[in-house]
Simulated scan of single mutants.
Amino acid sequence: MLHHNVETFIGCDSSYRAAGIVLFGAPFDSTTSYRPGARFGPAAMRHESYGLETYSPYQDKDLTDGSVFDSGDLELCFGSSESALTDIESRAAEILRDGKMPLLLGGEHLVTLGAVRAVLRKYPDLHIIHFDAHADLRDDYLGAKLSHACVLRRCHDLVGDGRIHQFCIRSGDREEFRFAAEHTDLHKYDFTGLPELADWLRQAQVPVYLTIDLDCLDPSVFPGTGTPEAGGVSFLQLLQAIRTAAKTNIVAADVNELAPTLDTTGTSTATACKVLRELLLALE
């Protein structure tokens, strides 16, 4: 059984036994391709969450009414991506074995792969909903196949065609978009098509993994990230998309790519905290 973290995300102080959702952090950013700092994201979100209310007027729900356990951050090997992914996979698998939903806080986007590996073993018919500015479909980045620029390509290696649904994508090389046209369900620039997808996934009763790269937000809203891309969505658009995706059978999720030291105003961290609060409430 996992034990309480010293500092928890606000309102996430249920016991492990009673919890339906278990938070855990993966402070890893060793494959970051531009600006590092995402390893500090999980701790910053916990610390700054106390500037929020536990109550959401958007959903008329309160974190104190639910059962979320925050197990803290993993201690990961920065020198080995595979070692870090193995530890993430192990923690996600432990949470799933205990009948709970793992919710991973990154860290760079590569951390998603570790959680997806664990979730796929329990749910072999898994679909992935992916919010991001970047396609993340490179087969390798400067020779490395384990990179945050390749994470959805590695996920595709596991789940195959037609089971990765990508939204807000506005950056990638030509080959990524060509690969997506043949192998994934890619929606450029915004959340167009998400309501229809959510209806289909709900009717099909398939398990869903939701991965949120916070750089789907426009840099005017969220500058504190490693690879900001102009032309993103608004905070309110993202909240609506989260509520829409939550109508499906989500069995695991993550929020990643906050690099708090890149935004000394604290705006990006405050935004990430609110996104996490709304995601938790939508999933309860």
Rank of each mutant, 00 (worst) to 15 (best):
V206Y: 12
K274G: 00
A241N: 09
G232M: 05
A204M: 12
A241F: 09
V275T: 04
L120H: 15
L283G: 03
D173A: 01
F78K: 10
D213L: 03
D139I: 08
H109V: 01
R117G: 05
K100Q: 07
L152H: 04
F167C: 10
E108L: 01
I128C: 09
V116S: 07
I250A: 07
A118Y: 00
A252L: 05
D190C: 13
I129A: 06
A245E: 05
L214I: 09
E176R: 05
V159G: 04
A93C: 07
E284T: 13
T54S: 14
I95A: 06
Q59H: 03
T248G: 01
D98S: 00
F177R: 11
F78E: 11
S71C: 01
D263G: 12
E108M: 00
L63Q: 11
F131G: 09
S33K: 05
G232W: 06
E53A: 07
H156T: 04
L76I: 03
S80K: 13
L52M: 11
H148E: 02
G224T: 02
F40M: 14
L146C: 08
G20I: 06
E284V: 14
P124V: 07
S268N: 02
S71E: 01
D87G: 10
S49R: 12
F131S: 08
L210C: 04
Y55C: 08
S33A: 14
E82W: 01
L104M: 08
K100M: 09
V208I: 14
L23S: 03
L280G: 07
A44V: 05
L186D: 05
L103K: 09
G172A: 03
F222N: 08
C273W: 12
F69N: 07
A26W: 07
L201G: 07
T267N: 06
D60S: 11
T269G: 14
F28W: 14
A135D: 04
T244V: 15
L105S: 08
V275R: 02
T192I: 12
A135F: 00
L281A: 13
C273L: 10
Q240T: 14
L236K: 08
H165S: 13
H187F: 15
H134E: 04
G143P: 10
E82M: 01
H109W: 03
Q59G: 02
D65N: 01
E175P: 06
S90I: 11
V255Q: 02
S171E: 12
L217P: 05
L279C: 03
G79D: 08
G162W: 00
H3P: 00
G232V: 07
S234G: 12
E89I: 11
